[in-house]
Structures are given as structure tokens and as C-alpha cells.
Write a protein that binds this DNA or RNA. Sequence first.
DNA 1: CATGAATGAGACTTCATTCAT
DNA 2: TATGAATGAAGTCTCATTCAT
Lengths: 215, 215, 215, 215
Amino acid sequence: MLVQQNVKKNVKGSVRQANHGKIIKAAVTVFANKGYQGATVQEVAEQAGLPKANVLYYFKSKQGIYEAVLSDILSLWNSSFDHATPEDEPAEALSRYIREKLEISRTNPEASKIFAMEMIKGAEQLSDEIKAGMVSWFDARIAIIRQWIKQGKMADVDPTMLMFQIWATTQHYADFSAQITILKDGKALNKRGFQEVGDYLCQSILSSCGLTPEK
Amino acid sequence: MLVQQNVKKNVKGSVRQANHGKIIKAAVTVFANKGYQGATVQEVAEQAGLPKANVLYYFKSKQGIYEAVLSDILSLWNSSFDHATPEDEPAEALSRYIREKLEISRTNPEASKIFAMEMIKGAEQLSDEIKAGMVSWFDARIAIIRQWIKQGKMADVDPTMLMFQIWATTQHYADFSAQITILKDGKALNKRGFQEVGDYLCQSILSSCGLTPEK
Amino acid sequence: MLVQQNVKKNVKGSVRQANHGKIIKAAVTVFANKGYQGATVQEVAEQAGLPKANVLYYFKSKQGIYEAVLSDILSLWNSSFDHATPEDEPAEALSRYIREKLEISRTNPEASKIFAMEMIKGAEQLSDEIKAGMVSWFDARIAIIRQWIKQGKMADVDPTMLMFQIWATTQHYADFSAQITILKDGKALNKRGFQEVGDYLCQSILSSCGLTPEK
Amino acid sequence: MLVQQNVKKNVKGSVRQANHGKIIKAAVTVFANKGYQGATVQEVAEQAGLPKANVLYYFKSKQGIYEAVLSDILSLWNSSFDHATPEDEPAEALSRYIREKLEISRTNPEASKIFAMEMIKGAEQLSDEIKAGMVSWFDARIAIIRQWIKQGKMADVDPTMLMFQIWATTQHYADFSAQITILKDGKALNKRGFQEVGDYLCQSILSSCGLTPEK
DNA sequence: CATGAATGAGACTTCATTCAT
DNA sequence: TATGAATGAAGTCTCATTCAT
């Protein structure tokens, strides 16, 4: 009896988890293509293959779905750079970061787009907790770059501007994919194209930091 | 008598022009902060200090306002780079372009944001006419850069990637101002800050093109 | 001087009269095809080739236009039957009336349609004056028919039902022209078709009144 | 348990069916008195005793309500004449049809009015499906009348004109009830009045077909 | 006289959310 | 737990009418 109940719970639990996942995935697509206001719970539900009321049963409100999506997105953005140390070689750490960021742009453009729109609109729906997390992550990275500079491992560039430069250039290929497609005769960038962009950006950014990009 | 009539006519004309301008200006602000769907005609009207029905008298629909805003934005984006020639010095032409783009980001961040959101959402509301204009402008610039390279005036970099790099890095300071403010302790970038960013970007981008930035 | 002024006035007067006529004609078309609520002053104005404000300058309101249209319609509906007398031969008077009504349906279907819709919706916009005129006209006709019957000139049918029968059958060809067209393979009735309908109706109605239709 | 569930389901089903019916009934009244454009969803909702949004939950749009109403009306118009055969006696079949049509006019004048207005305005909102149904019904009836004529069962009248005559005269008492009331001193026709009209029309129409009306 | 400009009122429709089972 | 049903709130747009010249 107990076992059976556990089994049921587990089954139910899995259903819950599965539905939860389906909804988040659907919501990412819808929010990325329509924006927060343009998205409708109905559309998320259809995309997820669930009744609308069921979606709102898992997440209390549209806002709730959106917050879950934002959280989910951040978890995608872990990179090796999170664990960089002053002892690392900046050339390697930075090129790896650039390539990882590009890879995320390639494989998760929708997440990047949602985050970009949130920022553009003033980040008013971003929780203070998330904001605080961003700040502490950022400050720590800046500190490490400063140490690299102090140690003479790289040129004396403004670490903040360097970070923004990396973000801007790598995310551009996710966020502005529509524009890129328009300007490149309707052809979207493929995996190899991203590889070449990575080469270009590493070359450009590292050389301006007085570093030699390693392929 | 005639004069007075002309004056009257002018007054009428200016009222129309003034209201038209007020509405566009208000709409830019609202669209930038709320997105297309999040914006309401009511809010645009309030921002413009006009009754809602009056706004819809000047522009037939919300979509109409938005299209007028997009048009208006494009006219802001003229730059000296529009008239660059193969005879120009790339160092000067490119640094001026970078600084002009940055200046636009500083003075018209809202326009940049609207355009960015339009692209992120897939550019579905952008007219084919505007798209065609973008393509021809872009192709012509690429051709000039290629000539510079051919003439040995600059290093052999991919012109397309170079352009995207310039756009991404300069527009970032408009589009992601909220993020920048969050990460910089609530302080937005002032004019001097933009100046420094310009120095940094010119230094970084030009050097990776084998050019010496001129201050 | 006076002459000139008169001329001017006349000219102006003609303009007024001409515009007045243009508006009524346009309004008849629009009201017939859209109904009162479905019609817009804008559409009437366009159909008349005048600015909307000009239309409302001639007629104070949409309601005013409509009332003018109703009045105008009634003036179209004069027929020889208005002047029928007990001395007339019913066979001739009735067949002429039937044919005249049919001819109006053929040449002025729009007027018939407007009147029909007004009646269907309950005649709430019909002025008491017009209603009173209708009643007195009707009562007088009924009285004449009764006299014909009394004189043994025709069978003892209910005059009211006879009148309704004539109206219903003749107006049907104007009001339900769309249905007729649908049922007759998309072909509307032409002049000859109306002629045949006239023959049929005269034959049918007169014979049931004990009269011999004269061709 | 099963039974109860069925009951519940039935209850749910009946709620839906009941609301559906309430809305259609309310809509018939409103459309008949105001026309399509004059009718408002709000008014239909009030008439049905439901919130406006609930009405639009059952029917997607005003147009949807209207289409449902038109469909509903057609289902009312079944008559014994639908099943007439060449073997039937025309005198009986036609008089029964006339009386049935009159009875519909008496009991469902609103349906008749809606249909009449739709036709007057050009039948643009009538679905092709419905139109096709009308045509095939009509053609079949015409064919039967032609057979009666061929068999010498009735005079050689034009079947199309005969049908239009029946429709026009019977529907007139529904559609033009306001006019009839005006002309008859404010008194609407009662059941007995309709009976007399039926006698009159049967007498008139059948005799002109060379038939003897049977009471 | 004539008319471009302006606007209050109100219509249709969408949608997030709540209810009831 | 899951979901069809229900609805208040709000948004876009239309339109008759008035204003101002």
C-alpha cells in the first residue's frame, strides 16, 4: 500500500516535473518571440500541449511563469569563467569565455533574447535577488581581471569595458539574428559560421588586451 | 491680409506638425520602455498631452504610430559613414563612425532600444522597404571596406564581422543601460564615460584591424 | 450690384441644391446597403464626393440625413392610385397600380429597401407626421375599394388584405432582389422579367377579385 | 456513482445548452429590432441575463452569434412542403404550405425579420453553404410544381413566381407588422386575424392556379 | 459658407485570472 | 490534481458631432 502510494507519488511527481519542464520550454519560445506583454498564457499552453488552466495551476500567474523562465535562463549561463582565478592565464580564460558565450548564443538564442528584452525595458521585472547575484558575480570577475593586469599578465584595459565588449559582441549573434539573416541574404549563421566569429572575436579582443589568442 | 492668412496657415500647419512631433516623441518613450505590445495608445496620448482620439486622428492605428516611429528612428541614424569612399582613410572613417554611433546611443537610447526589440522579436513589423534599404546600405559599406583591404590600407578582417562588432559594442551602451547601471552601483554612464568608452572601442577595434587609432 | 448679388445668391443656391441632391442620392445608396446603423456619415460623404463636415453642414446630423431620405422616398411613391375614385374601373385602377408599384421596385429598389428596413425595425424613426399621412392615404384607398365592392364592380374581398397583397408581392422584387438572384443562378431580373411578373400578378390578383385583367 | 456522474455531466451540459439557447433567443430579439450593426453584444448579454464576456465565451464574436442565429432560423423553417411529392394534390400541399408559412410569421416574426434584413442588405453575411441549401431546396420544389402542371393537376403558372408570391405575402405579415399596426389603428393582428389572412391568401393564390381551396 | 481638426462616447475583442467540479 | 467554464478589466478602434477659422 505504502509502496503503491509512493509509486503513485513518484509517477505524479514525474508528471509534474515533466509538465513543469514542458511549460518552461514553451514559455521560453513564446516570450522570446513575442515579449512579455505580447505573450499569452493561451499560447504558452498550446505550445506546451496543455490546457491553459493547467499551466496556471503549475505557475500561479503569467508573471510567475516569466520569473521561472528568467531563473531557468540564468542557470544556463554558467561558464568556466565563473571559476576563473588570478592564477589562470587570461588568454586562455578569456578565449574560452568568449567561445562559451558564443556557444550559448548559438544553442540558446531564445534565452538570450528574453534576457536582452528584460534589460532593454529597464529590468523592472528582474528580482532584486537576481540583480544582487549579477552584481557580485560581476565584481568578482572584474577583481580577477584587475589582478591579471596588476600581475602584468595583460594590458591595462578597463575590465568593465572589456566585459561589456565580450557580452555585446557574443550576444549580438543571438539577439540580432533576424538582422543578420536579413543582411546575409536570408541565410542564418550555421555552426561553422559561429566558429569563425569566435576566431575573429578572440583575435580582436585578446590582441587589444595585449594577449595572443590561442586557437 | 494675405500675410495674415499665411500666418494663420502656418500656425495651422505648425499645430499639426507640433502635435505630430509630440506624439512621435511620446511614442518613442513609451515603446522603448514597454515594447510594442506593452505600450498603449492611452499612455502615448497622456505622454503627449493629447486626448487618445486625437492621437488616432493623426495616426490611424497603434501600428501606424509604431511604423512612423521606426521611420523616424532610421532618419536619426545617418552618419558620416554613409558617405565613406574607398579614398578615405579607414582609421579616420571607422573611428568617426564608432564615435558617432556611440553618440547616438548616448543621445537617443530609446530609439536604439525600439530598434533592438524589433530585431529581437524577428523584425516582423519592419517593412520590406526598410529592410531593403538596410541591405543596400550594408552591402555598399562592406564593399568599401573590402576595397580598403585590397588597397592594403587595413588588415584582412571580415568586413561583416567588423560591422557587427561595431554595432554590437556601440549599441550595447544604449540597449543595456539598465544592466550597466545595475552593475555600476546605480550610476548611469555620463558624457565623459561615453568618451572613455569611445577611446577604448576605437583602440580595440582599430588595432585589431591593423590601424592606429587617432585620438 | 443687386443683380450681381442675386446672381451670386442664385449660383450659391444652385450649389446648395446640387449638393443637397448629391447627398440624398448618396445617402439612399448607403442606407439601403448598410442599414441606418451600418451607414456612416463618412461613407455618405465619400459617395457624394464631399467632405464629411460639409455633409453635416447641410444636414445637421446623421438622423437628419436619414429623415430627409425617408421624406424623399415618399415623394417617389406617388402613383395614379392616389387619385383613384369610386367612378374608376377597379380592373384598370388596380392593374395600373400593380404595374406602377413594380416599376418603382425596378427603378428604385434602394428606396424600397430603406423603407422596408425601417418598417422591419419597428418604424421608430418614422415621424408621426409621415405615419399620419400613411394612415389617411390608406384609409381613403380602402374606402374606395369598399365602394367598388358595394357597387358590385368587384368581388367582396377584404380591401386591407388586398392592399397588403399588392404591396408585398410588388415590393418583394425590390427588397429580396438578392434572394432572387441567388435562386435564379446569379441572374437578376431584367426589364422584361419585371413585365412578366406584372402580367402574372395582375392575372392572379385581379382574378381573385373577380376581375378580368386587361393587358 | 456512475449515475451521479452522468447527472453531473448532464447538468453541466444543460448549463451550456441552456446558456447557448438563452443567448440565441436574446440575439434573435436584438438583431430583429436593431439590425446587425445596431445590435450590440452588450445588449444581447443583458437580454440573456449573462455578462458580456460570457456571451463571447460561447460565441467567439458578434459575427459568430449572428451566424448561429441565421442557422437557428433556418432550422425553424422546415415545413410539410419540404416533403411534397408529385403524387400529392397541389391544392392541399399549397394551402398547407401557405398556412404553415403564415403560422411561422405569427409565431416567429423576429426570425423572419432578421432573414429579411439580411436579404435586403445583399445577403453578404449569409454563408455559401446556406445559399447552396436554399438553391437546392428551391429547385426541387419548382420541379415538383412543374410536374403537377404537366400532370394537369393545376394551371400553367410560372412556379418561380408562384413561390415568390407565397413567400412575399406570408412573410409580409411578420416583416411589416409595424406598418400593419400603424395602418390598423395600433392594433396588431391576432391569431384569428392570421386565420383570416390564411383563408384569403389560399383563396386568392389557389384560384389563380386553377385550384379550389379546401378549407 | 465650407471644412480640416479635434474629441467624447461607446463598440468589439482579448486576456489573465478565478471558480467549480 | 486537473480543467472546462466564467468574467472583470482593459485595450484598440470607430464614429457622430463640435469647434475654429
